[in-house]
Every structure is written in C-alpha cells, then in structure tokens.
Design a protein around this nucleic acid. Structure first.
Lengths: 145, 145
DNA sequence: AATCTACATTATAACAATTCTAAACTGTTG
DNA sequence: CAACAGTTTAGAATTGTTATAATGTAGATT
C-alpha cells in the first residue's frame, strides 16, 4: 500500500500542488490492488462514502482533468452519455455491457493484436483502441415493469 | 442524383412514414457523392443553409435516431462531448487526428478484421469499433491543447 | 372525398453532465 | 511571516439531449 507521503511526492513530480483534496483523491483512486473505471459521479460517491469526506464537484472535475492531462488517469471513449476514466493508463481494450453500462478490461489474450496496414501520411499512431459493445443474448427477454 | 421519390420509397421500406421533414433530411444526408460525419448541430445548420428550411430541433433528433435505429445512419463514438453520426453504415473503423480533431474513415484495406477470441458469457457482441488516434510525426512534441 | 387514427412534428420545459465565475483559501517561495 | 500564484468552492451558466403535450398529417377505412 502506498502511503500519503508518496502521493505527495508523486503529485509534486507531476507538477501539481499536493493539496488535501488531491491527496485524498489519490488515495481513493490509486491506493488499490486493481485498476478500475469510474465516472465523475462514481468518484464523488466514493469520496463521500469511503473517505467520509466532501470535496466540491468542481474540484473533482478539475482534479480528474489535471490528472488526465498529466497521464495519471486516462479517459475512455464509450458513448456520449458521460465521461469514463480509467486508472489503468496503459493501452488496452474494453468490453462495454450495454445492459448494465459496465466497462470491462479486455484481457491481453481476448483480442488478437490489431493490424493497421495503412496509416495517414505524415502521422504517427498514438493509440489503437478497440471497444467491443455487448448486450444480453436473451432474445425473448421479459420486460419487467 | 437520387430523386425524392426514391427517398419516399426508401423510407417506406424502412417502415418510416415519408414526411416532408424526413424526405428533406434524406436529401441533405444522402444526396451526395461521399459519406460524411456530422453532429446534430451540423445537420441543423446544413438543413437551414443548404435547404433553406426550418425543421424543429426535436424532429432532427427524433429523425436521426429513427434513421439510426433502422440502420440508415450509424452513431460513432469519438468523445463524450456530443454524438457523432456517419452516413456510412458499413462496418468500418476510424482514424482520429488529435492535432486537427478530424475524423477519417478507415478504408476496408487499412485494418485487418479484429478477432475477438473470448467474449463475456451470456452476452452477444453488438459491435466492434477500432479508433486509431494519430498525431503529427514531426517531433516528440507534447500535446499543448 | 370525408373521416379516422396512429404516428409525427413542434415549441418549450426539463434534465443531466460539465464548465464558468468570482470570492475565499492555501501551499510555496523568499 | 508576507505575498502571491495556484486551488477550492458554491452556485450560476452553458450545452447537448430528452420529455411533454398540443397540434398536424399520412395513409387506411369508410
């Protein structure tokens, strides 16, 4: 487990002042075994529930964007509903469950490497990301409600 | 050039009443040499500028979604700001130029078919989309934004 | 052709996600 | 510790989109 002091160092290293709010957010986001996906709303809930802390919504937005800009978080493109973020900043693919709106990391072995045979001239490829949208296979699904 | 009458037939074939508004929108969207990408706002502008016509914003949303549902338009996932649509409904992928924020269709030959080896149990795959983010090849310059 | 009705259109209200504002606060530097 | 630039904050504003409810219309039925 990473201690607060390390987050302070980490933040300084990124050129971000280690404010109370930012350190708290680091704890919520990065003091974990596994990486995960979240929306701003998820994160606000986590902060208030897990940390019993109140950070202004505007600050959560500011900080998430600051982290993203520094490459400490990654935005994932799913649908135009809302923004999703990932604490796993490596290049990897996703399944998106359209029923549950759940986002699941693809295992490295789930998808063969994507082979791009031709590129835009004068451009270099920054990332190649695959989004596999899935939904319930049940055709005769009963509508409850 | 496709005549109105054909759009009327086309709409009927899709199970959509060929209203004045829908036929107008077909003309703006499909009476072209090449397919293209657009936002709702783009489309509203095109309707008023190219057709000198006024269609209610709600109708534009309704109709675009109706077309999408029938497979006459395709939604593309770029970012979460707003929805983008594509008059090219075939399965294809996109290059996204991070410098110019331009979206470019991948040619069929540009990317090999993506092979998904493992799926989520009980789910069927609805779509597989690849987004290739490219940027200037010049230097190792950081994004300035 | 008049009538009927389910589907469409419309302006506007409502909504949700995000950004802006401007005042108060705080980490850092000297 | 003083000064200041960077940060936080609540609330307002903005943006993209969906819901509402009254009015209009395409196409079938008479």
């Amino acid at each position: 487990m990473v201690k607060n002091c390390n987050f302070i160092e980490k933040l300084r290293g990124l050129g971000l002042r280690p404010t109370k709010q930012r350190v708290k957010m680091c704890e919520v986001l990065f003091n974990r075994e596994k990486t995960f996906h979240f929306t701003i709303n998820d994160l606000v809930k986590m902060i208030s529930e897990e940390m019993n802390e109140k950070i202004s919504l505007a600050t959560v937005y500011n900080t998430v964007h600051a982290f993203e800009k520094k490459g400490y978080l990654k935005e994932i493109t799913i649908n135009s509903d809302k923004s999703y973020f990932d604490t796993n900043t490596s290049v990897h693919h996703h399944f998106y469950d359209e029923d549950t709106h759940e986002l699941i990391d693809c295992d490295e072995n789930d998808i063969d490497p994507v082979n791009i045979k031709k590129n835009i001239t004068g451009k270099k490829i920054n990332s190649v990301e695959v989004l596999v949208k899935v939904a319930s296979d049940n055709q005769n699904q009963k509508k409850l409600n």
